[in-house]
Write a protein that binds this DNA or RNA. Structure first.
Lengths: 229, 229
DNA sequence: GTCGTACTTGTACGTTCGTACAAGAAGAGG
DNA sequence: CCTCTTCTTGTACGAACGTACAAGTACGAC
């Protein structure tokens, strides 16, 4: 228990010694979000060369940019302008394709969930052929943690769902995916426990930034999988 | 895997069928945040009866109100005006006591962490006298989950720390508290595993809103505590 | 070719934000 | 009593926000 506590009760106006939040500076565009069919906003002298049409690519680019912004700034600080800048598209494109900001965010989270579902099917095949469930599972978790961006979005979605019931089915599906993946291998109860262990472990890794302790996690999974029922 | 997926690729402008975020309506004040020394903003006819001085109470009321707003709206949607309204104080009070919004949020999160630390010491005494570690631990988790507000703030802090390194020590302290609490009872390794299991379980409960399955969690804790080393 | 729809874009409106600050009241020290 | 410091409050300013929309361009239908 070594919380860098301050006693938080002083007289003067400025005794806050806590960690200063860096206030999430402005989001810079990447301009590579559009497939090769599109063009960068202004690579040449023209004031604003109009791009050729590609509605589906634009919709996908906006959703992808939104996910990036959510991963970096959080849902609460995601704005039309940040998304448009990241996607390299004009502001009006965001409201043309999505009626409101909430719709844009919801679409992005659904796309993220769909990507995750596809990922989980890869996990399923890897586990089906695995000689040792625990070892392979830990490998998969380690690979998953390599891209912190995805993991951040997962937990961002969970926290948002805890506050907003409308997001709950999406977040539940996300958590449930891992559970259902494990059921055929270890049964209902152990699957429940192991998925909680893995989610907790990933949260710890996300916060501390530490690398995964593979042998320890493998042993813990075995302990939960093999416990008497 | 029953994600309510939409194929996200349509022609028209409005095909988003995802869960609509309810856009977090305006925050209403509670006006009970000030100790009996203070008065409500306008209970009688006077336009704005000036309150008597109590700087420490105001600072504490602002931090408490900030925590409430964070729990309800998230860090990203926490504003000076929402906090002031919740605390029943004028807008200027927020900037008088905290130089910036980030400082206000950091102070609130530190207060929450300090409260949590105090809670953990109660946990420590309860566990010291407990005949059965696993059973008592599950009881404590169940009691902790009764107030989802606190739990939401914990995970909100973790997600924010994953994005903002300045918050990392605070979030790490939070996670580490549970770990160090368990070390004297089950040793370093099992404490690590059990704290991950508990954090993951709490996340699941937070998202699903389901009640805690006490017997299952108790068994899982035992499996992790008793595993061969 | 022309016509019409669907898409693109820049700009504008009203709101809300963080922060600054002047004017004043409260209470301690004389 | 007066005075000075500290606290309180209302208001104001520029920036950023969500959203609306007019004007214009691309492209298939004909």
């Amino acid at each position: 228990m070594t919380i860098p506590a301050t006693t938080t009760a002083e007289g003067g106006p400025q005794p806050t010694t806590g960690p200063p939040l860096p206030a999430d500076g402005p989001i810079q565009p990447t301009a590579d979000s559009l497939p090769p069919g599109g063009r960068a906003p202004a690579a040449d002298a023209q004031p604003a060369a109009r791009r050729s049409r590609d509605p589906e690519a634009r919709r996908a680019a906006l959703a992808a940019a939104t996910i990036e912004i959510i991963a970096e700034a959080g849902i609460g600080r995601t704005t039309h302008r940040a998304v448009a800048a990241r996607a390299g598209l004009p502001l009006g494109a965001t409201t043309y394709y999505f009626p409101t900001l909430d719709a844009l965010i919801a679409a992005a989270l659904q796309k993220a969930a769909a990507d995750q579902e596809a990922d989980l099917e890869l996990w399923a095949t890897r586990l089906r052929d695995a000689p040792d469930l625990a070892v392979t599972l830990v490998e998969l978790v380690d690979e998953y943690m390599a891209d912190r961006r995805t993991v951040r979005i997962e937990f961002e979605l969970c926290v948002a769902a805890a506050r907003d019931a409308a997001l709950r089915p999406l977040a539940e599906a996300w958590l449930h995916g891992l559970h259902e993946l494990l059921v055929p291998h270890v049964g209902e109860d152990a699957a429940h426990d192991i998925s909680a262990l893995l989610d907790g472990t990933m949260l710890h890794l996300l916060v501390t930034g530490a690398p995964l302790n593979a042998p320890a996690l493998t042993a813990a999974i075995r302990a939960l999988a093999d416990r008497p029922r």
